[in-house]
Design a protein around this nucleic acid. Structure first.
Lengths: 340, 340
DNA sequence: TATTGTATTTTATACGTTTAAAAAATCAAA
DNA sequence: TTTGATTTTTTAAACGTATAAAATACAATA
């Protein structure tokens, strides 16, 4: 039996008072608005009795605020993003905000749609991992004074706040570590996509390699096929054909996943001969021999900073301070990067 | 400069027509409502020109529908759930629905809050991995004719639809496979939580073990600590103290993660001596030697069936057919479960 | 010319809240 | 017993949309 949910009006009628009074009590403004103690008590009792739940859609229409934030990432099932998302979710809930997650697949069109869609839905703020080419929509949001914080990548041309990590240093440091461990022919496997953070990682790799007097050896995998067989074939071919490679630095966690699988398929013993570092850490890297070294992003700190900036924007819509954070990651050295 | 978003009224005024006409054209009901071709064209041109975006909050208030679904799981950063979530997200977007993800942490209180919260927000449907003790809230939703589909676990007392897998068979089959591979002392590591799917897995394990004339050897880890050191200590202690164990069957993916790490920490060679099967597959299981056998849930099929049932409910609010699906998983045998 | 029908467009209201402004009630002082 | 001040409560409008019902315009028919 579907019973209509009671509205403020129903309550007002039942108690023979006005909706205004009920609304004031509901929002804890009873005292402030000088509603008499007895009436407040009466209304509160009734609200509790019928277990009243306000219609938040109506409230949003009236107030213009939804208390909903959006967290738009490349792929929410990527553990790096889902971990950050999980923390953001927790912080938001504690502050009485909800979070919508969604995956852009790094596709501009899809991201544009999503941004408009959520903007139409009046969400209060956006945390976005921006795909290349999305500048216009971000500007649009900024112009409309919608709180936006970029994550994982910045857009240099834009005056948007962001929280990213120092990709150049991370990659350089990781590469340097391999060099220090005695590897001489270090390959870099990355994604063929025009994204600033990938460029930075590549640049960091190249910087370290060239400083050491080696020459770069880079394999670029098409983005959209990173998960499917054809790209695995590319990786395998690359590894097999460059016989002299003694170490590999994977530019992202999903590449190291694919890559490790490839290495294993080529020869189960091969992993013991290669130096390996992955950009992005994983739980699984400590589960087998050799344990896998990784450049770990400060997931917790990232999420916390993102939310700090976001709440700041939500509170002081006007005098928002510009917050552009570049955090440092940590190189976690494990067995895979020691000299074999 | 924050410009007020144009409303139907603004458009109507600009064109000197009524909001009704604009609304009809906007919703593609122009012809049906016999608006003249010229006027339709004029309105459409104007809509496009000012790049009009309707206020979906207002629309929701008016229509009572938000075109938002909620996907509530134990932990959205658990890859099993985030994978299913990802597919659900895709299917929903294709059908012009959005999805809210959230994590219940298996906590009744939190889940109750979430359910009410989203119900107040008028979401159109719920897909829920129900924690124990949540019967009342689910009933509440059902009584109010809110579309609900349970996932991963059913609630036997409730007439709610669900999509689950045959946990008993999966566990039995997995255990049987270890037995067939010649293991004689197979331990089962599970979570100490009163959940039907965990009971089923345990029962499946016990059934296979007893049929073979062996005796069960079960370790139960407290739920909320499954990720933290103390539970790892428990697992390590258990493995070390039962010297005669020759195989371990992990009841969930996060347990196999912890467990494999423990095994590695005890002795890097140990994994080569133990038979291992994990309930739930993972990308990482093919990356090292030995590759790890797993009982894989049909992630794709689950997500598709869930959405099929959900859309069915959303369309025919009245004559909803009862849909209770028990899907079968697949045992993926890899090196870890072959006789050593 | 009056009537009917058809095609087109508008008026008016509702959804459930919030809140400024107005009104009513109460009380104290003159 | 009127006046003014204060306290308490209500009226009324607004947010932006959708739609039933009414209204208008126009042509065709009797």
């Amino acid at each position: 039996m579907k019973k209509k949910r009671p509205s403020l009006k129903d309550i007002a009628d039942a108690l023979n008072i006005s909706t205004t009074t009920v609304s004031f009590v509901l929002n804890g403004k009873g005292e402030e608005k000088k509603i008499s103690k007895e009436l407040i008590a009466k209304v509160e009792a009734h609200l509790k009795e019928i277990n009243y739940k306000p219609n938040l859609v109506a409230r949003s229409l009236r107030t213009g605020s939804t208390r909903v934030l959006v967290f738009m990432v490349e792929d929410i099932s990527n553990s790096h993003f889902s971990k950050v998302g999980r923390i953001i979710e927790d912080i938001s809930y504690k502050n009485d905000y909800r979070v919508l997650f969604c995956s852009t697949e790094n596709d501009v069109k899809r991201t544009q749609d999503l941004i408009h869609l959520f903007h139409e839905r009046q969400v209060d703020g956006f945390i976005i991992v921006p795909p290349p080419g999305i500048e216009k929509e971000i500007s649009y949001l900024l112009e409309n004074e919608v709180p936006v914080v970029l994550f994982d990548r910045k857009i240099p041309e834009l005056e948007a706040d962001y929280v990213i990590i120092n990709n150049f240093e991370g990659a350089k440091q990781s590469t340097q570590h391999l060099i220090d461990s005695g590897y001489k022919n270090i390959a870099f496997i990355t994604i063929d996509l025009d994204q600033i953070q990938m460029h930075d990682r590549e640049a960091g790799y190249i910087a370290a390699i060239e400083e050491a007097g080696f020459s770069p050896n880079i394999l670029k995998i098409p983005y959209d096929t990173s998960n499917i067989p054809s790209s695995r074939e590319k990786i395998k071919k690359f590894i097999k054909e460059s016989k002299d490679i003694d170490a590999i630095f994977f530019a992202t966690n999903y590449l190291s996943q694919s890559g490790l699988k490839c290495i294993h398929q080529i020869d189960a013993k091969l992993i013991n001969k290669l130096g390996i570092i992955s950009f992005d850490d994983s739980n699984f890297f400590e589960m087998y021999s050799p344990t896998v070294s990784a450049f770990a992003q400060p997931v917790d700190e990232m999420a916390n900073q993102l939310m700090k900036i976001m709440f700041n924007k939500l509170k002081n819509k006007e005098q928002a301070v510009s917050s552009k954070l570049v955090l440092e990651g940590t190189l976690v050295t494990r067995e895979s990067s020691l000299k074999k």
